[in-house]
Design a binder for these strands. Structure first.
Lengths: 240, 240
DNA sequence: CGCGCCAACTGGTTAAGACCACTCTATCTG
DNA sequence: CAGATAGAGTGGTCTTAACCAGTTGGCGCG
């Protein structure tokens, strides 16, 4: 999926372009962009298609292509007070590190992180706590090469993504995420302080940096009574 | 609506093909399908891409393309290929109407739909069925004034939003949606043919048309083993 | 007999170009 | 001056034709 070189280049170019614009502004015509970027129109259109699907761009036949209605794509947010990624104000939450260590990637993780199966992977399991109440369990896997020198205390508070950027030069840029309904098992229930088989949101997220490298693969479980996901949808033509 | 002619033809062909197969079976190679259907490979691939995005097909580089597990993975943002809850394949799903009638809005719904509490509201409860398997329960409430003359049969198949546009001149444009984890109660479990207290996604959606009028307020429950929500995120600054 | 290599599949990406359909505007005509 | 119209520009679709990159299995060599 991530394979294409040119397509990624075009995509990144467009992302930068969009970042400087206000919602609703036009982007250059497809034919102009082709010339400027030195790619064919199908390639360009494939890249634009991606962004249209994500809601960052909107096409209008005969008129042009425009930056999407919601500018900064905080596509998802969660109650109580923040998004899945920008939790409550710093200082209001903390993490208890349950596990922190190196493991070989193995076949599964190697695929997820696009590494060799023998590559060392840092695995961190942490319990997220807001106002003394456990809210979520996060199981984070990331290529050790990216974060050599990271210690558990680094992940107990503060913004991890900011740490990545400032100390390791990793500029988190995009993520693909799937959410599903699930229930807690015995240990999860205990950690989250809820009954067994309690409703929960299972989230899988793969995060990439500005160069398209995979930064982390995360499996999280959020208490169903404390988190909801809200999103805004924009339709263009038909739907069911 | 659904864009291309050939692409639709290919898509329909593949849907029929998939319908006869069990999950995990291979479909013919892309080059063979091109010959058989008389289309070019990019066109064919575009059609396959749609189905891969919908989760009906799975590609494996160097091996082939296979019918997917019967789990519907939805893109959260509005995509050309379908809305959140309607599997892209028209004709593959149907609805059983469980309830269809007028009720006064009452205080709660009046707020949700921005109507007077005395205004008549059409309430429809339907069971969504894909390939003979119940997948979701939808409880739809909409201002009766918007859809006078609507009959139950209108909501048993086909695109409801298209019907709204073509017959009632209502141009569905945006929706705000919240998703949460929940479990089925007794009657829900029976309708969905799953055990009681089974994981499920609860979804609330408020839909508006191009003029900003509220078109519908929907509460749905999706089987947790058959639905997941996927979304793409773009970061700006920092996060946790 | 076993191992390794290579050929023939598979999907993945890109190119270049043609033509259609829609929208806007500037110009021509009444 | 107002309306109709033609052209230019836009996105929408499709074709032909390459080449790249994994996967598989059979053939030949050791």
């Amino acid at each position: 999926m991530r394979a294409g070189l040119k397509r990624d280049r075009v995509r990144d170019f467009l992302l930068d372009f969009i970042a400087d614009k206000r919602p609703g502004e036009a982007i250059p015509s497809e034919r102009d962009l082709c010339k400027e970027l030195g790619v064919s129109r199908p390639t360009l259109r494939a890249a634009i298609d991606d962004l249209v699907r994500s809601g960052l761009l909107v096409r209008e036949h005969g008129r042009g292509t425009f930056t999407g209605p919601h500018r900064v794509t905080q596509a998802l947010s969660a109650t109580p007070s923040g998004s899945f990624y920008a939790p409550p104000a710093e200082g209001h939450w903390q993490s208890r590190i349950l596990e922190f260590g190196l493991i070989p990637a193995g076949p599964q993780l190697a695929t997820r992180l696009q590494l060799s199966p023998a590559a060392p992977v840092l695995r961190v399991v942490r319990l997220r706590i807001v106002d003394d109440e456990p809210m979520a369990i996060e199981r984070i896997q990331l290529p050790h090469a990216l974060v050599e020198g990271l210690v558990p205390a680094d992940m107990e508070s503060g913004s991890f993504y900011r740490l990545l950027r400032e100390r390791f030069g990793v500029d988190v840029r995009t993520a693909v995420q799937t959410i599903e309904a699930t229930v807690t098992d015995e240990t999860e229930a205990e950690l989250l302080n809820v009954p067994q088989h309690f409703p929960a949101l299972g989230v899988e997220r793969t995060t990439r940096d500005a160069d398209g490298r995979i930064v982390e693969f995360v499996r999280s479980m959020y208490r169903g009574d404390r988190y909801r996901v809200t999103s805004e949808l924009y339709f263009d033509a038909d739907s069911g």
